[in-house]
Design a binder for these strands. Structure first.
Lengths: 341, 341
DNA sequence: CTGTTAGCGCCTTCAT
DNA sequence: ATGAAGGCGCTAACAG
């Protein structure tokens, strides 16, 4: 005598077989209008809710996806997560969130867990794992969207090898805008604080910076390149300390994300440097806090909500049409000038 | 010829029955050391991963919980979510996150969805629904932890009626500290910006404020009580505009959360008011941004990580021991004085 | 200690 | 248009 009402209970009370009850409710097969209405009424009256675990086992689809990010408490991600959540929710999906802290072993472990839970797809903001490795863990057919910090240039064949859709941002736009903005103000001694050396988004973004500098005819001084050991305010602070110590410090510092940039801001203040006069600072992401630090952070807008929607759309498309060509979406980034540069 | 290896495949290759293979791996029943080792070796070699959906159906437990909050992109929640995630992960659980936007209908809908997915427990930061209503939706036996913005005073019988564990914060501590802090500075004209009128955490916190004022021998002027229409910066800004317009505006404003407080800060700045001289502002939560606005926000620390751990611990306890008495945990809050008051 | 049987709740053949 | 039967993958319960 369980408290849950199952399809059998509904069928019994409606005087039909479980199969017919199922079909009446799902519309999978034609059912006489009369019985359909009766079954529906009974189901509603009994507050029948299909057991989604059983349905998942039978249908071999869980209506579940995994969202794997470095750290959900990093303020950039909640906006992405929220957008994904809303969009997939409209398709009847819910998501598991996994934090990996950028640790390769954790990434593998969480991926395996999600695979064991038979998620219908994975959206992964990888920090450490290569796409091949990810693919090898989730199996050859799992719908997979890579949330790359940076949309890699995509020769057709490479995307095909990944057998994954990619969503990212075209970081070079915003980074070039930032470099141009600084140069217009007459600052050419530009440094950069990247994320951890091994991390994928960090490395790519740094390369975009180098390219932008070169194209602008500016020299990048390697002593002015710093590596934060994480993507946090504290690690940004520490990295800035090293860059700002020498007497020939840079006149501007661009950063791999806003948290790092805010750390740089604090480090500058603690050294008695006035921003932006003594030191200009440019962030990346435009997290909500960016508007409220002092001076307000000049940064590069990373359209988190659009990124989330694009991820969700790509995954839904892949699940529904496994064989359409893999796509590679790059959302534009743009500089927003505020007080810090 | 599926690509997934199942327990049958392992059993076949190890030369035992599926049941024995299952027992060998789970240790549910004694198995000879020799066969156990052989089965383990085969399972590892074949990279066997049990199908958790099938296991869930059979065992009638999904190792899954639901975390329902108003809006995951509110910066207070990610820290809670992360703490819960980490703690339940150690027990083999993963979580579904649901956003409800404080909409009662959405709360019901999401709860029903989670119930249909057979989650083993629910942690809910309700905005609108009464505990009775929640209980009626999830059924009488679902382990349930209420993440109350405020720990209600708990006559034994009330908690028992809820048949839920509760985790909250003792807001009166921090609020009293804040009132005392302001009075020590000679400010007695203290206003308050609450959250939406109907919202449960907002209402409770406002009552704590009234109590603290009364106990401090201070009068609360109802014209100085504002209601933000949400828990966001923008709604806080709007509410502040109304409070600050009259010539006899308050000398200080306390707020239901930090986002609202930051909105108040901006409104004050836009009116040419200097904080804290012309207007003192006190927030609630101590979100990461609080340290970085200017002036730095004086606020009441809401120990998000501890709250998350407490929620997770309460839920794990309830799942493992359904009959232990219901508990009611109140974490202390404390004022942290920075620049804004 | 091990194997066989049965069934979690649902849905999709296949048969009528 | 409906019903009966079987099985998704796993593991309890029941033999042996």
């Amino acid at each position: 005598m369980s408290l849950e009402v199952g399809i059998k209970d509904v069928a019994l009370r409606a005087g039909v077989s479980p199969a017919t009850a199922s079909n009446a409710l799902s519309g999978a097969r034609p059912v006489s209008k009369e019985t359909r209405q009766r079954v529906s009424a009974v189901a509603e009256a009994m507050k029948y809710r299909p057991n989604l675990v059983a349905r998942a086992l039978r249908r071999q689809e869980t209506k579940t996806i995994a969202l794997l990010v470095g750290d959900i408490s990093n303020p950039y991600y909640p906006a992405v997560a929220r957008a994904i959540h809303d969009r997939i929710g409209a398709h009847g999906y819910v998501s598991f969130i996994g934090n990996t802290d950028g640790d390769p072993e954790a990434e593998v472990r969480v991926l395996e867990e999600m695979r064991a839970r038979s998620v219908d797809g994975v959206i992964m903001g990888t920090m450490a794992l290569s796409s091949e490795r990810i693919r090898s863990v989730v199996g050859p057919t799992m719908p997979l969207v890579l949330l790359t910090g940076e949309a890699l240039e995509s020769p057709e064949h490479q995307v095909r090898q990944l057998r994954a859709d990619e969503v990212g941002t075209d970081d070079s736009i915003g980074i070039r805008e930032a470099v141009a903005h600084l140069r217009n103000k007459g600052v050419t001694d530009i440094g950069y604080v990247s994320g951890p050396l091994g991390s994928i988004p960090g490395t790519d973004r740094l390369q975009r910076f180098r390219d932008a500098m070169e194209d602008a005819g500016l020299r990048v001084d390697d002593r002015w390149i710093g590596f934060a050991s994480g993507y946090t305010l504290e690690t940004g602070y520490d990295a800035a300390e090293r860059l700002l110590a020498p007497s020939d410090r840079p006149a501007a510092i661009m950063c791999a994300n806003d948290l790092i940039a805010i750390g740089v801001l604090e480090a500058a203040r603690d050294r008695g440097l006035v921003v932006p006069t003594d030191l200009a600072v440019v962030g990346f992401d435009d997290i909500p806090t960016a508007k409220h630090v002092s001076p307000r952070l000049t940064t590069i807008i990373n359209p988190a909500t659009l990124v989330g929607y694009a991820c969700a759309d790509a995954l839904m498309r892949r699940i529904e049409h496994p064989d359409v060509p893999f796509e590679h979406t790059a959302l534009p980034t743009h500089l927003i000038a505020r007080g810090s540069a």
